[in-house]
């Protein structure tokens, strides 16, 4: 079954068209990597999937498990199992990381018709997942992301994902700025959830991550279009040759 079907998606921000017709199908059990130069529209695609209102969809559609995703508000998407790990996670003063996560988990469970977790169950779950991402327990009590280092913020995103157990995880450059140990932890977070019922879209600049999260498909996004798709070898080719050859192809395509 398809988890995500993006068909000829167009989106603009502040009247400027960023996504110029993207099509992509992600099936259950798959991991898709999206690579591309700065400003090509990778985060825009992720934000559109998460439901950010500033990004206006001007054409095409997105189906999530057969349902129109674009009709749902951001919280409804999350409750249906979509998770977005942000490129730049927001700091939220005054809201502790645990409170936040408990409210999120309970909102999702309520939506699924499950019982809300009590304090004891929650703590047990959180402890277990924290070990997985090797996160310091003090980060739980602190306000969400406030004063966290860049690496801690990224790890916190993976920690949230591990607790919320989404069906579709979209990771926007979660590996950027991480050392190799932290990168392995991020990969471990994804791999531990990876199964026949879930899927992941992993946005990255670096082939390195894909040594640890082995993708089924790699797509290259240039100027708002997917200009090439392939298997994991494509990432290696990009590592070697850069994007310029694809960018030339893309501009030829755009003027054609």
């Amino acid at each position: 079954m398809s988890i995500l079907e993006i068909k000829n998606l167009r989106a603009s921000v502040e009247e400027k068209e960023i996504l110029k017709g993207i099509s992509l199908t992600v099936k259950a059990g798959e991991v898709h990597a999206i690579m591309g130069p700065n400003g090509s529209g990778k985060s825009t695609l992720a934000q559109v999937l998460a439901g950010r209102e500033e990004y206006k969809v001007t054409g095409g559609k997105v189906l999530y498990r057969g349902k129109d995703l674009l009709e749902l508000g951001p919280e409804e998407r999350a409750r249906e199992g979509v998770f977005m790990a942000f490129q730049y996670p927001v700091e939220i003063p005054g809201v502790s990381n645990t409170y936040f996560l408990k409210a999120a988990l309970n909102a999702i469970r309520k939506h699924r018709g499950e019982k809300e977790v009590d304090a004891v169950e929650f703590l047990k779950l959180v402890r277990e997942k924290m070990k997985l991402v090797k996160m310091d327990e003090t980060l739980l009590r602190r306000p969400v992301n406030e004063g966290f280092s860049g690496g801690e913020k990224k790890r916190n995103e993976i920690f949230h994902m591990a607790v919320l157990e989404p069906i579709l995880g979209v990771l926007d450059e979660t590996d950027s700025g991480l050392d190799i140990d932290a990168l392995k932890i991020v990969a471990e977070g994804v791999n531990s959830l990876r199964d026949q019922n879930r899927a992941f879209v992993v946005i990255t600049h670096y082939q390195r991550l894909l040594d640890y999260i082995i993708p089924d498909f790699v797509h290259v996004l240039v100027e708002g279009r997917i200009v090439r798709s392939g298997g994991k070898e494509l990432a290696l080719e990009l590592e070697e040759k850069g994007y310029s050859w694809l960018e030339e192809e893309a501009s030829a395509l755009a003027t054609a």
Binding site: E75, F86, V90, P93, V95, A103, A104, H111, L164
Partner: peptide, 24 residues
């Protein structure tokens, strides 16, 4: 941005506003 972040994790908009107001 904070409201969107909370919503994107499943917390409803009204609850997100209340949570941030409560924190304040």
């Amino acid at each position: 941005d904070a409201i969107f972040y909370l919503r994107s994790r499943g917390i409803g908009e009204e609850a997100a506003r209340s949570l941030l107001t409560y924190a304040f």
